[in-house]
């Protein structure tokens, strides 16, 4: 892949690793859509999904917010998908 969204992808991977019990299972796949939107697909260990989603989705929203901020300088739209 290109470098598009690499900073955001690494940020998402590293911060998620701090949140979960099993950081070795944190994986972020990224791909670019036709309109230039970068999609980050986040996967964690089965038991860790609750930790990255949080009560009422608050932690997932916080992750999306910091990822969005990280993409501002690139002028990129970045989406975070939590996949299981």
């Amino acid at each position: 892949m290109t470098d598009a969204g690499a900073g955001s992808r690494d940020l998402l991977r590293d911060v998620t690793a701090m949140l979960v019990d099993d950081p070795t299972k944190v994986a972020v796949d990224s791909f670019e859509e036709d309109d230039g939107t970068v999609v980050l697909e986040l996967a964690v260990a089965d038991d860790d999904y609750g930790k990255v989603i949080g009560r009422g989705g608050r932690t997932a929203n916080a992750l999306r917010t910091i990822v969005k901020a990280s993409a501002v300088r690139d002028g990129r739209r970045v989406l975070v998908d939590i996949v299981d």
């Binding site: 930790k51 916080a62 917010t65 910091i66």
Partner: peptide, 24 residues
């Protein structure tokens, strides 16, 4: 400004994550 975000949305997100990793 980028770290703080609109109406503090970004710094509040960082604070939420800090609470999670801190209490963990």
């Amino acid at each position: 400004g980028l770290f703080i975000g609109r109406h503090g949305s970004t710094i509040d997100a960082v604070q939420h994550l800090a609470q999670r990793v801190g209490h963990k």
